[in-house]
């Protein structure tokens, strides 16, 4: 039975690039605890020697020919950009500490 600590919640938030205020964090922490505990029900099942199911579809070698097609214009590509100079997507400069 794993314990969901504040540290774990912080680590997961970091990995997920999410942030929570104190109230949200407390709800998340307690929900995670309940749900993860619920997930541990699987430990009741003996899966010794069972191969994990990696792909639900049985097809293999679904490949495409090396052809150039399907591109859109730069204008279309930048249409939804929150910030752009018409050439690039712009993000606030990565601050080097």
């Amino acid at each position: 039975m794993i314990e969901i600590t504040d540290q774990l919640v912080d680590n997961l938030a970091e990995l997920s690039r999410l942030e929570f205020d104190a109230t949200q964090k407390s709800v998340i922490k307690s929900d995670l605890q309940k749900i993860i505990q619920f997930m541990e029900k699987l430990n009741e099942l003996d899966t010794e020697g069972v191969e994990p199911l990696l792909h639900i579809s049985t097809r293999t070698n679904v490949l495409r020919e090396d052809e150039v097609k399907g591109s859109i214009t730069r204008e279309e590509g930048l249409k939804n950009a929150p910030a752009t100079d018409g050439q690039f997507f712009e993000v606030p400069k990565v601050i080097q500490k």
């Binding site: 993860i36 997930m39 699987l42 430990n43 099942l45 899966t47 069972v50 191969e51 994990p52 199911l53 990696l54 639900i56």
Partner: peptide, 11 residues
């Protein structure tokens, strides 16, 4: 968790 669940999915 993840691998375990994949195994159960196989079952």
């Amino acid at each position: 968790y993840f691998t375990k669940a994949q195994k159960v999915r196989q079952l």
